[in-house]
Every structure is written in C-alpha cells, then in structure tokens.
Write a protein that binds this DNA or RNA. Structure first.
Lengths: 210, 210
DNA sequence: TGTTTGATGTTTACGGCGTAAACTTTATGT
DNA sequence: ACATAAAGTTTACGCCGTAAACATCAAACA
C-alpha cells in the first residue's frame, strides 16, 4: 500500500481525476508551506488536510501517521539541499573552492528555510531508521563532501590523514555553524550571519596552531 | 507572580507543608525524567503533573505554559553542561588540552543525555528571547571556550586571528559533531561515537592543508 | 458493455493535550 | 484570630492523532 513512487501517472498533465488529482504531493506542499509560515509546532495533519480541502482522515491514505508526513517533508529537504550543493559545485574547479561553495550552499539553505532545515534534523537515529529513503537522501550530502576531500588529497592540497575524519570535521563545523546561527546562539548583531562561514572555513583550512 | 528564585525556603528540610512542599522542582525533575525515558514528544504538562501526583492545572502556578516548562528544563541543561565543562578544565593546564577536555565534556553530555541536549537546542532565537535566564546560561558555555582561545593566543600557541571567529569554529565543530552523532548521521558502525572527537580536534588544530 | 473491486476520500468517535475560569484550601502576616 | 494571597482543584472548551465503518470512483475484467 501507500503508493509506489515510480507507478505515478505517465501523463500527469491530464488532470485525470482521481478523487483529488494528486493528494500526497498537495499535502506535502501544504505541509512545507505551513512549516515555513507557522513553524514546526503548527504542522498538524488536520491543518494540512484543511488547507488542501480534504477531510482530516484523508492524509492517512498517503501517510501512515504524522511522523511519516514529517519524514517525507524532511526527505524533500535533503533532496533539495543536495540539489543546492550540486549546483554550488558546478562553478569552481579547485577542491577547496568547491568545498567552500558547498559550505555556503549548506548554510544558506539553513538560513533561508530554517523550519525545513530543523525538521530535517529533528528525528533521531532510531526514528529515522523507519524511513530508508530519508537516510539515503541524507547520506548523499555527506558523500559529496567526502568526494571533494579525496580529490583535494589526490591533488596534494589536503593533508593526508583519514579522509573520513576530515570530512567529518568539515561537515560538523558547517552543520554546527548552521544550527547555531539558526538558534541565534552565536549571532552577534553587527555581522551578517552568512558572512560567518568564510572566516570559519579559513580557520578550518589553516588550523588553530600559530 | 511565578516565584522569585531566591525567595525559596531557608530550611527546605522542614518539609514545611505547602500544599505540595516544592512543586516546581518536583515538576522539573519529573519533566527531566520523562524526557530521558520517553523522549521529547512525551513531555506534556499533564503527564508531568500526573507523575508528581497533582492536578493537571497545578503546573500553571509555576510555569506560564508548556514552553516555559521546556525552557526551564533547557536552562537546567545548560547549567549542568556548564558544570560538566567546568569540571573538565579543572585538570589540564595547557589551553589546547583544556579545549580538548571541554570538547569531550560537551560531546559526552550530548551522548549521555540526548533528549535533554536536544531540548536545549530546540527553541529558535525568537522563542528563546522570552527566557533571558536561558540565554545567559547558554552564553556561559561560549564564554568559557572563548577564554581558552584567548589564553592560547596569549601563550603564542594559537594562531593570531579574530579569537571570536576561532571560538565560533571550534564550537561549531564540536556542537556539529554532537548533533550529527545524536542524529546517527555520521555514525559508522565500527567506531565508538566518542572516539570521533579526538581526530576531529586534531584536524581542527592542524587544519586541512597539506 | 456492464460489473466488480480495490484505491481514495468521508464520517463518526475516542481519548489526550494545552489552557482558561471559577472554585477551594492552606500558610502567613497583622 | 482573621484576612488575604498563594497554591492547588474542577470543570470546560477546542484542537490534535488515530481508528473503524462507510461511501465513491477509476479501472480492470467478464
């Protein structure tokens, strides 16, 4: 049950009337919109159903429960983030520049869609295991970064230690920066949030030592 | 209204019967316990009241609403984290060692009390503004780190750039590691989670460059 | 072509939640 | 001792997630 993703309409334009046409997608869209406007606390199945104009039980034909809807929204977020990061590295060629571009895309995504970003990381490991598509989408972003680290090492630019540890470090720093900015935890009023990332990436490059 | 913190009983042992004795603290304790056992979703005013043996409206004498209770729990978390970090730096004398100890304490706290840690960072900046005590408790942990960075610079060990940017970098990396480990996002099965922090701190020290 | 059938959506119902208002009880200061 | 305000209770309302029974429609098959 619950719809196989690939089985969708070949000619989706035909508006070939289901009962609704394409609930699921409509629900997802409404959920995302609600999330952006009113925050995570306001994201309820009933409100989403209301906005889409169906009964409050209709969503259960497409999502097992509220968590499943949230997981689907999170998954969409990871896919969009992966796209943004992909677009970012389409420009620069040098590994370090590519990593910088990815970092920017990551932080920008977080700052532009805070509620969405938050939801993406709101499920703990156990909860996430029930949604393998989500896990795959999330892994994807890590793999992109790791590839750049390895490329940097092959080019002799990046230090030759465990590449996964290096990728962990960079990802943790970028992710940490994103969530701390979101939390307003290290926002000092003078500085534009996004300008924080370049000094940070410089510090990562150079290290702490004198 | 809502109790001035300092005005509490001088001799709290006397069990000088309020109606309850010391609700608020009991509520906070129950909330923390519930959080640890059942996760953030299960943290409800009514359940907390039930556990403490009081009517479901009683908590409103001590907390304006559910968010206020959550904020108080978060604040306790920051205070405890600050204590843990304080205890960690009581040993080593060298700035870099102290930073390492602080990082360990931070990640350990997150891994040992995941639900609590999550709650601490679950409120966005706007929401947090309503709870200045929370904000102060949170700032405290940052200031400890910044002090170590400055000490390292004075000792000539740490690179002489903007110390706040350096502190941001280290904090972001440590915080990012903590939340990613919690999310199971970069857990690779072979390695013990806490062993991740030392390679990361080494990478921070040395930088990425070859 | 007409019928069946499974997918999609609705109605009704239940209990839990946050919160407000009106009420009762108790501790404390005069 | 008694008034008063703080602390706790009861009752009530509307929202939520979810389950079950029911209705409707699209499509496959006879």
């Amino acid at each position: 049950m619950n719809r196989v993703p690939g089985k969708r309409r070949q000619t989706p334009r035909r508006k070939r009337g289901y009962h609704h046409g394409d609930l699921r997608r409509a629900l997802l869209g409404a959920a995302l919109d609600l999330l952006a406007r009113k925050g995570p606390a306001a994201l309820s199945l009933r409100e989403v159903a209301r906005r889409v104009g169906v009964s409050h039980a209709a969503p259960y034909r497409h999502f097992a429960d509220r968590d499943a809807l949230v997981a689907a929204v999170a998954q969409e977020g990871f896919e969009e983030l992966a796209r943004a990061m992909g677009a970012a590295v389409s420009g620069p060629a040098a590994p370090l520049d590519r990593m910088r571009a990815m970092g920017h895309a990551y932080v920008r995504f977080a700052l532009e869609r805070p509620a969405h970003f938050r939801v993406m990381f709101s499920m703990d490991a156990d909860a996430r295991e029930a949604y393998p598509a989500l896990a795959r989408a999330a892994d994807n972003t890590y793999d992109r970064l790791l590839a750049e680290v390895r490329a940097g090492q092959r080019a002799g630019i990046v230090r030759d230690t465990d590449p996964e540890a290096l990728a962990d470090t960079v990802w943790a720093a970028v992710h940490g920066l994103a969530v701390l900015l979101l939390d307003g935890q290290l926002r000092r009023p003078e500085t534009e949030p996004e300008t924080r990332i370049d000094p940070m990436l410089d510090n990562l490059r150079m290290g702490l030592l004198a």
